[in-house]
Amino acid sequence: MTVDIALNVLLLSFLAITGLAIARVRNLFPVAMLTGLYSLLSASLFQLLDAVDVALTEAAVGAGVMTVLFLATFGLTRAREKSVPRSRTAIGLVVTGLTGAALFYASLDMPHFGAADTPVQEHPLRERYLETVREEIDVPNAVTAVLASYRGYDTLGEVTVVLTAGVGVLMLLGVSRRGRHDDDKEP
């Protein structure tokens, strides 16, 4: 087993352990911290798989912004999760199992990892991007160059969606705070 494969397996094991810990813990503050850890582990795994752009997004949004939003939201809620009736837990488990089975079935149609005959490897623009990216954009990483230049509108759209979601959450938090202060003033 090579070092890269060993690191991937180790990170996947840590991801599974962290996911189980998130499901078991009932206090919401550790859940927020574990969720940030999960995102950080995911970003590390993406980095090892040479998906630098995805790793950067996961680290910034998943480990950074989402953890802050969770903690801000916890200031407006209880510290512990409410207990859920057993029937609702069973329904959630069934839905999760069916979703997992559907995702597993869908993954069987995916090409093998690293296969040279995948559609993305055979796309006609692939050669053009790889041959002309240094002259046209002068960015050494081809993935970064494609995302920043050739797919700039897509990237701008993604940034706009994340910004809009963040502003929406902040507005919701602001409305809740204003409502709580107004209730405090009334006798």
Rank of each mutant, 00 (worst) to 15 (best):
D4P: 04
D4C: 06
I5L: 15
I5G: 02
A6R: 05
A6D: 05
N8V: 13
L10E: 00
L11T: 02
F14K: 03
L15W: 08
I17W: 09
T18F: 04
A21F: 07
R26I: 00
R26S: 01
R26M: 00
N27W: 04
V31R: 01
M33C: 10
Y38N: 04
S39C: 15
L40F: 12
L40S: 11
L41G: 02
S42N: 04
S42Y: 06
A43R: 05
S44C: 07
L48A: 12
L49M: 14
D50T: 05
A51F: 06
T57K: 05
V61N: 04
V61C: 08
G62F: 08
G62N: 08
V65S: 03
T67Y: 12
L71C: 09
L71H: 03
L71S: 03
A72Q: 14
A79P: 00
R80S: 07
S83H: 04
V84P: 03
P85N: 15
R88V: 03
I91K: 04
T96D: 07
G97I: 07
T99P: 00
G100H: 02
G100V: 11
A102S: 14
F104S: 07
Y105S: 11
A106G: 13
S107G: 11
M110C: 10
H112D: 11
G114V: 04
D117A: 14
Q121H: 13
E127V: 00
E131Q: 12
T132R: 06
V133I: 10
E135K: 02
E136Y: 10
I137G: 00
D138M: 14
P140C: 01
P140L: 02
P140W: 03
A142Q: 06
A142V: 13
L147K: 01
A148D: 09
Y150H: 13
R151F: 13
R151C: 07
Y153Q: 15
D154Y: 14
L156M: 14
G157P: 03
G157L: 11
G157A: 14
G157Y: 06
G157E: 09
V161F: 12
V162M: 12
L163Y: 09
A165S: 15
G166T: 15
V167Q: 05
L170P: 01
L170K: 01
L170G: 05
V175C: 13
R178Y: 08
D182E: 15
D183P: 00
D184M: 15
K185H: 14
P187Q: 14
